[in-house]
């Protein structure tokens, strides 16, 4: 079982996050201030730290993060913050955060990002990816399904590559915009959905097994089995 340390001073929020993590079968340990956070983080072994940016007392989120990194602790850290501006986000990520989520957020978004962070070491870049009968070759920029070549535009290719590298894992729309287009803003329209539906037409239309699945209200799941829906 993956272990999560949740450093969040607001009791309600902390409780909701821990419950959500536990339902997703993680072990979640709450902690309500920066000093305890640093101590717990350094003492135990954690797979991920969820860190609120604004904490009471003399240690705020970024100081906690700085202390961890100074102690050579490279546990993935997901920063939560009510400061949502690009500046704050950049500052959070530059201080050593692995991902930044602004409040208020959907719990599903949080879980998807936690999973992405935990999976990260596994997605080491192998040049050829395969899920079921779909093969993506990054060296030749070629995609085939059941032996048939599928023609994709460059950005569609990157979209599919991202999905395949995160196969079996829920990815949200913002994660796609951030990773595939490399922009961080909320497009606030269904522009990503339309992209996904076009990709789906190209990848799934003529085949009985649908690889791209929609997870209602959250995002998408790329998977060779139907069970996740």
């Amino acid at each position: 079982m993956k272990r999560c340390l949740v450093i969040e001073d607001e009791l309600n929020a902390s409780q909701f996050i821990c419950q959500a993590l536990q339902r997703a079968e993680y072990e979640a340990v709450p902690c309500h201030n920066g000093l305890d956070g640093v101590r717990l983080a350094l003492e135990g072994h954690w797979d991920i730290v969820i860190l609120d940016r604004m904490l009471p007392g003399q240690m705020d989120g970024l100081s906690v993060l700085a202390r961890l990194r100074a102690n050579n602790d490279h546990t993935p850290v997901l920063i939560l913050s009510a400061l949502g501006s690009t500046d704050e986000r950049v500052r959070g990520l530059r201080s050593g955060g692995d991902d930044y989520l602004s409040k208020p957020f959907a719990l599903d978004e949080l879980l998807a990002r936690v999973e992405a962070l935990l999976r990260r070491p596994l997605t080491a870049s192998s040049p050829v990816l395969q899920v079921a009968d779909l093969v993506l070759d990054t060296r030749h920029q070629r995609v085939t399904r059941a032996g048939q070549t599928i023609a994709l535009q460059p950005r569609e290719f990157r979209l599919l590559e991202y999905l395949m590298r995160h196969a079996g894992q829920v990815v949200t729309r913002t994660m796609l915009l951030e990773s595939v287009w490399d922009y961080h803003f909320d497009p606030q329209t269904n522009v990503i959905d339309v992209q996904m539906s076009r990709l789906r037409t190209k990848v799934d239309k003529d085949f009985s097994l649908a690889l791209i699945q929609t997870v209602r209200g959250v995002g998408y799941l790329f998977s060779a089995s139907d069970q996740h829906v």
């Binding site: 501006s85 690009t86 500046d87 950049v90 535009q153 460059p154 950005r155 915009l177 287009w181 490399d182 922009y183 497009p187 329209t189 269904n190 522009v191 339309v194 992209q195 539906s197 076009r198």
Partner: peptide
């Protein structure tokens, strides 16, 4: 107050990226 995050950008790159983001929408 946001000017601290100003950096060198390529407007043409942004234009092309956004067109690539909306191409599916336009097509539909």
């Amino acid at each position: 107050v946001r000017s601290t995050s100003f950096e060198s950008v390529d407007l043409d790159r942004i234009a092309r990226d956004m067109v690539e983001l909306y191409d599916a929408e336009a097509e539909a």
